[in-house]
Amino acid sequence: MLIAILSDIHANREAFEACLDAARAAGAERVVLLGDIVGYGPDPVWCVEKSRELVAAGAICLRGNHDDAAAGGTVSLNETARAVIDWTKERLDAAQIAFLASLPLTVEDQDRLYVHADGSSPARWHYVTDSESAALHFNATQQRVSFCGHVHLPALYSRLAQGHVTAFTPSSAAPIPLLPQRRWLAVMGAVGQPRDRNPTAAFGLYDDTRNELRYMRAAYDIEATAAKIRAAGLPESLATRLSTGR
C-alpha cells in the first residue's frame, strides 16, 4: 500500500491541496497527517475541515504543537507564531477546536510509529536536527520505521542495532529502500512552510510492501497564499518566507 505522509501543513490550503493531488496522482491509498495543521498560514478553517474529512475517510492525524496551542494548550511559541495562533483561535469554531484537542500525539501502525516532533517525549516537542537527537528517538522507541515532522527540513536517519546513527539529506524523489535490518527515522519536510531553501511543498510517499520511501515535492501557487497572508493582516515575514523556502 502506498501511504502519503504530510506534515506541517500550517493552514496553507494551496500547498495542502497540491500535495493531496500529487499523492492521489501517484496512487496513494492512505493519508497520514503528522500535525501542525494550523499556525502561520491564512486558511486554518479550510485546512482543519479538510483534515476532519480525511480522518472520517480513514486517515491518521496527529497533534502538533501549533494545533495544541490553538486548542488551548500551554506550549511555548515565539511571538510571531503566538500572534497567528491567537488570530487562528478567533476563526475556529468549537467543533474545530475540539477536533484539534482530540488528536493523538503518537500513532502506532504495524511496525511504524507516527509522531509530530520526536518519540522520546512527544509532548515536549523536541526537534530532530542531527544524529544525536535522532539517537534519543531511537533509544526511546521500538518501532522499525518512524515518521515525524516539526523541523520543516527533510532528513532520513538510520541505525543498525546499536551502531552509529547515519544521517542523510534527500535531494531527489528517488525511492529509498528502508532496509529491514535497520531502524529508520524519516523526518518529513513541511507542506505549508518549507525551510530547506526549496519553496515547493514537501511530503512523503511510503510503500509498505516494497519498503521504499520517496521524498516528494509539489509546486503550488505561492503568490496566492502570500496574498492571503497579507490580506489577513498576518506578519509580512510569513508571506515572504514562503517564496524563498527559508
Binding site: L156, S158, L160, A174, P177
Partner: peptide, 8 residues
C-alpha cells in the same frame, strides 16, 4: 540519491 551508510 541514497543514504551513505558507510559515511558515519
Amino acid at each position: 540519491e541514497l543514504p551513505d551508510l558507510m559515511d558515519e
